[in-house]
Design a protein around this nucleic acid. Structure first.
Lengths: 219, 219
DNA sequence: AGAATAGTGTCTGTCAGACAGTATCGC
DNA sequence: GCGATACTGTCTGACAGACACTATTCT
């Protein structure tokens, strides 16, 4: 085993799966069932299987398919981690991705008896993470935040139809600060990323207009 | 060989080495000496060697050390490319980096007899590139441009001491558009990334004040 | 009516682009 | 003086933050 490790590195993928629930950015952790790092909390991940995976992103989706029962709308690479010491099995590469789970799909977690799953606050996981996954998590949050800061709208975290207030709360959860309602709406009115619908969401108070992502939208 | 390929992917690194010379953003190409894709132009790259490399970035630096006789100030990951078909040898991963070469070191290329080296315009290479390297190049340029667009200063492309006009020309070469001199200088005066020196570069006309990167500068 | 949320109008300071103007060198 | 490059001053339109205001629903 270690003989091959000297020629070929171990290649794996890890995924930070984000959702925004209860106004907070959350990330999915798993309690590992197998060695190495058994019984420790970590980001979901797995080993690349060339005969199953058509790409590294496909591997990331396959790894998550065991835990989430819906197709994820967005899986995007963050960066790689590599070196001889980060995994006890030897020289290894981990390609890190983040994925966004729509707010109305947060209960699509397949309850796997073998392992425990838990949503935790992305900026305060509350568990010690195995391997270098603490760094994985902070890097993933930074990348997500940078994109939203640059003006990208995280529509993949919302249902297909959403209100502007829902979108604002989602962005606030990612950025960690409150936005001005007036400026925010002005900005979106002149944006080509969202289109207004002739539908309204009836809630406890005044109904709110619904929007959806425009056809050419990309995160 | 192909038997192992089914279990372990081929892992390599490729590097887009940029410099700005003659007011244009240029990238280094090599004419490949060995199979696969022998005699075709490509970005410099090589296979990861776990017994030599401490990380993927170290592998990228090692690959370039054969071509450039100075330590590069910045090597940064762009993204990965992967899949069963992108290399004739089988399932493969390429981790792409870009690197920046200071303007006063553009002649630090080691003349390797075996292979041809050539600086070409980054947005119009003039050669058909092997593998998926054309995509590698455009993605690298996009990433570099995005960072500069976001306000980062590409000081690693300049000598240790530089004038504001040199910096402006460098940024213009990356962005592909001209900047307003007044706005540009106003912005830099309030920036903590550069510090002014009490030295001036004497040229054919009025001497220009020299600047250097501040101590805490990071690209 | 009152609470709660949706949505709008207005003011103002900031700042980037435009561009004219000044300064300092070599010749 | 003249050309060339370095550097500065001023105007203006666009826009983001702040915040008050109106609108529509439920109870």
């Amino acid at each position: 085993m270690n003989a091959t490790r000297d020629l070929f590195p171990l290649v794996g993928v890890d995924v930070a799966l984000f959702c925004v629930d209860d106004g907070r950015l959350q990330v999915l952790l798993v309690k590992r069932a197998e060695e190495p790092a058994a019984k420790q909390w970590a980001l979901p991940g797995g080993i690349l299987k060339p005969h199953l995976d058509n790409s590294l992103e496909a591997a990331a989706r396959r790894v998550l398919a065991h835990k989430v029962s819906v197709e994820l709308p967005l899986v995007e690479e963050v960066c790689t981690f590599s070196g001889p010491d980060r995994d006890p099995r030897g020289w290894s590469i981990s390609v890190l991705f983040y994925a966004l789970l729509p707010r109305d799909k947060v209960n699509a977690l397949v309850r796997n008896k073998v392992e425990a799953l838990e949503w935790v606050g992305a900026s305060a996981p509350g568990h010690r993470l195995a391997f270098d996954h603490a760094q994985h998590l902070t890097t993933s949050v930074q990348k997500l935040r940078a994109k939203v800061d640059a003006g990208k709208l995280p529509l993949h975290l919302l249902p297909e139809k959403f209100t502007l207030t829902q979108l604002q709360r989602t962005i606030e959860a990612i950025l960690g600060r409150e936005l001005d309602k007036s400026s925010f709406r002005r900005q979106l009115k002149s944006s080509s990323d969202v289109v207004e619908l002739d539908e309204y969401e009836r809630g406890a108070q005044r109904p709110a207009q619904l929007f959806r992502a425009s056809d050419g939208f990309t995160f």
